[in-house]
Structures are given as structure tokens and as C-alpha cells.
Design a binder for these strands. Structure first.
Lengths: 257, 257
DNA sequence: CTCTATTGTGTACGGCTTACACAATGTAAA
DNA sequence: TTTACATTGTGTAAGCCGTACACAATAGAG
């Protein structure tokens, strides 16, 4: 059951957040999108020092962690009912902002709960790029997509978290087909292939790829072709919702790799 | 860097544990062993009410969670340098002993940190049955192996945690060969096969199994045979440490399933 | 000594994966 | 208008892997 975040000022949150949230525990979301044939991840830019980080948040005292992750996702993207996969919990004793003086706003007392050690639970989500309305949080001046190959140095261990999310995503490709959540409703086979190639970070054979994907029997080939591109117009496809669900239940026998 | 647990009495731990440990956070270990052709899991029996649970513990304020899990493992089994795989973090807001009155010792105040909500981080480990010296913790009257098929109703969501550990273990069979940690140094092919059959919960073909395992090229066939059993004496094998490590780095191409 | 359960070994089939070639089409340049 | 080029649509052959399966050898039990 999703809950409402208390409406706190930034100062209140820093100084009294522990009244509402569990101390020492945070959520970090790695939100993947796909656009212009590039895999993207949603990042926030911290007000105080301009450094980048993953969208994150805290867990309300009577809130399930899965709901907390969904709440964070919704408040940064406007999206709900998105599948969130918990992939790892990061618990180095050195995970504290206190160690990185640059991260502390000057007006904040050094003993704020916010500066303390945090164990963070990592989730990733796949979202349709065009449906996202990026929205910064109270701490941030910007919330925007970043090409997966151009991610800057992030705060704390957020680069590690991102890397592990990608590893987890790749492992999961054997269990569900990619695309339904990352591509628009109608898409072409080359687009889907490039998505796979980006996530797996390797080239795939065009003909074998098509054979395999169609062999899963979860796509519907449309009559129309994608107009406007240079060169021969490719056919459009869309997912067959019914067959997709059925395939999910029984599990994919053989993954793309 | 492993740390020492503060030596607290049970009463102190219940009432003042939050001075040493992070509040609301716990560790639970699913420790697998293999004996008499059966997969076993190590369980504890709670002093107050005789109910069973997974071996668990808390995270010291300046301790990595991985180290905390290793500390818990060592204090229940006497084993160190064991691979611990973090598989999931359980964070339902209903995870609190307060809800289960039966769990509270009568002398404990209802507002003890111990009765509060806990988010628990789950790890599993594979250990050699014969090397374990089971040792109860401060709260328990017993610490012993339980057949995986005969696990009773455990406290809180510990049955869920155990189930998910098994699922995680099965998924990981594609990435590393089973046996090095669960079997004695020398073992027979039928023993190894029965281990796989138990974990995967299905029968495997004897001849194909042998072909595949030997194909991994990580076993050394010994000259001796296992004496003493009824029927034809099977050959003994042991793991080739060097080749094993090499195979781990490059990853197994094809798993057993 | 015989019987039986178990171990040791090899082969054939089918399916999946991989490698690969040529015709068709739409845009851009000549 | 024609040509060139990049890209799409489609099918086939070879090889590897997984699976199914049979028979001889051996050790203990009776």
C-alpha cells in the first residue's frame, strides 16, 4: 500500500527526518530508459555542490521497502505500476556522507542523521523513456537522463550500484524478454536488436536474432512499416500481451546471449 | 575486517543492544550442509518458546554487513573464510516480533528495540557438514541441522527467507559447480550427483551427468575406489583447485539443469 | 556360487546455436 | 532520372550440446 511522504522542508528533513523515516536505511533506484538507440539512466544533480547521484530516498517507519522504492520511482518519473527488481543491498561501514565533507550543506550540523552511515537497498526499473516526466527532489537542481556510457563520477558508491544493476539486468535477460517496458508500443526489429546489443554490450547477428525473438512467439507483426528513416522501411511489431504473460509464467527456456 | 561482538548478557542485549548495533537492521544466514544424501540447513531453537529460526544477528555500528554475516556464520559453526552470498533483503513493515506476542520473553519490556521492526539482509552459505561445530547463541537452547524437507514452521518470515535462498542457490548453479564446499575432499560421482539432484529437486541421468561434470575439466579422478558400500565400488574424485579457480574466473558456459 | 543392485562406459538422434549469401527497398548523391 | 549505398527480409548448412538409451563389470548378500 503506497503511502504519502510527509511534506518537509529540506531543513526539516535533514534535521528531523528520523522522526518519520527508519535511520541508517535508504533506497536507491537505477532507472533505465532507451532513446536514440542508447541505454539511459536517470540521474539527479545535488543542489549544494553540483554532484550527480542516483534517485533515492528513505523508508517510512511503517512502509514496506518495496513500496518505498515505488514511491521514489513515482516521485522522480511520475510513473506507477512499474516492475522494480531488488538486486543488492550495499552496506559498507564507510557509506556515510560525513566522510565526504563536500557533500554537506554548510548550514547543516555535522551530527545530522543524514550525515550518518546508511545501508542502501538497490532496485532497478525499466521504463518507457517518452512517458517519464523527470522531476528533481528537494535536494536537487536537476533530474535528467544520462547515456549509460557517459555517466560521470557519482557520489558515494553510486557508480558501483549502477554497475551492479547492469550486471543484474543482464543476468535477468534469460528470464524475461527485453523491450516491453523500454520501447514504445510499436517498434522495429532493428530497434529491439539494438536494445539487446546495448544491454549485453555486444553485437548480435541480425538474422539469428530475429529468428530467436520471433521463435518466442510473443510478438505480433504489424502490416505497417516504420517510415521516415533513411533506407528500406522496416516492419513494425508489438508485444502480444496475452502470450507475453503466458510465457512469463512458464519462463523462457533459452535466453538471448 | 572482522570485529568482536560486545560481550553482553541477554538482558543487556535486549535492553541496550541499540548502543552497539544499528537499529532496525538484522542479518539472517541460510547455512546449507549435505549429509547422508540429504540437504540440510542449520536452525536455532529459541529459549523462551521452543520455536525454530534461522541463525541471525545484528550489524555493529561500524561493521560492514558482509562482515556481520561472516561473524554470525562463524559464531554458529566455528567456520571462517566461507563464501557468503547475499541473495535478498526482506523489508515488510510487518517484520516485527511485537506482532507475535509469543516471541517476547515475559521479562522484556514491550518497547525494547528488539521487538521493533527489522529489515533483514539474507545470506546463504555452503559448508562442509563434518567441519561444523553447531553452537547456539545467547537466545537459543539448540543449534542443529535440519533436513531441508522437514523444516518446521519458523518464526516471522524465516520460511520465506529459506525458500528464497534455495531459489537463489539454484539460479547460481549455472555460475559455479556445486560440491567443493558441501562435500568432503574426496567424493564419488554418485554422491556428487545426489547433491545436484537434491538441490535441483529432480532426477538426473547418471551417464549424462558424469559426461557433463567431467567436461567442465575441474575434477581429478583418483586411483582409489570408495570401499565399504554395498555393490560395485565407485571411483573417488577431488576438485582440481587450480582449474577450479580458472573456471570460476571465466565463468561456466553451460550449467547443470 | 548365484543373484542383485550399482558402477563404468559409448553411441545415435534431435534441437538449438552459429555462420553465412543474396535479393529487395528507400534515400541520397551524381 | 539514374546510380550508389546502406539497410531490411529471408533461408540453409554445419556443428555443438542435450537427451535418451544398453550392456558389460563388480562387490556384497544370501
Amino acid at each position: 500500500m503506497p503511502r504519502k511522504t510527509p511534506q518537509l522542508s529540506v531543513k526539516d528533513l535533514f534535521e528531523n527526518g528520523q522522526q518519520y523515516y527508519l535511520p541508517h536505511i535508504s533506497i536507491d533506484n537505477v532507472i533505465f530508459g532507451f532513446h536514440d538507440n542508447e541505454l539511459k539512466v536517470l540521474l539527479l544533480q545535488w543542489n549544494e555542490n553540483g554532484r550527480w547521484c542516483l534517485p533515492g530516498g528513505f523508508v517510512l517507519k511503517d512502509e514496506d521497502i518495496q513500496d518505498a522504492a515505488a514511491r521514489v520511482l513515482k516521485s522522480r518519473t511520475s510513473l506507477s505500476d512499474i516492475f522494480l527488481s531488488q538486486f543488492h543491498t550495499f552496506g559498507s561501514s564507510k557509506r556515510k556522507r560525513r566522510r565526504h565533507g563536500i557533500d554537506k550543506p554548510k548550514w547543516l550540523k555535522a551530527d545530522s542523521w543524514f550525515m550518518d552511515r546508511f545501508i542502501t537497498i538497490g532496485y532497478w526499473a525499466l521504463v518507457e523513456f517518452s512517458k517519464v516526466i523527470p522531476k528533481p527532489d528537494e535536494f536537487s537542481m536537476a533530474c535528467q537522463w544520462c547515456d549509460i556510457d557517459k555517466v560521470p563520477k557519482l557520489i558515494l558508491d553510486h557508480n558501483d550500484i549502477l554497475d551492479q544493476a547492469l550486471v543484474s539486468l543482464r543476468r535477468n535477460l534469460n528470464e524475461f524478454p527485453l523491450g516491453k517496458d523500454l520501447l514504445p508500443t510499436n517498434f522495429t526489429m532493428p530497434e529491439l536488436q539494438r536494445l539487446y546489443e546495448t544491454v549485453l554490450n555486444k553485437k548480435l547477428d541480425r538474422r539469428n536474432f530475429q529468428k530467436k525473438i520471433l521463435g518466442l512467439d510473443i510478438l505480433i507483426k504489424l502490416q505497417e512499416r516504420k517510415q521516415g528513416g533513411a533506407h528500406k522501411a522496416p516492419f513494425l511489431y508489438k508485444f502480444d500481451r496475452t502470450k507475453y504473460k503466458k510465457a512469463m509464467k512458464s519462463g523462457l527456456k533459452s535466453g538471448l546471449q
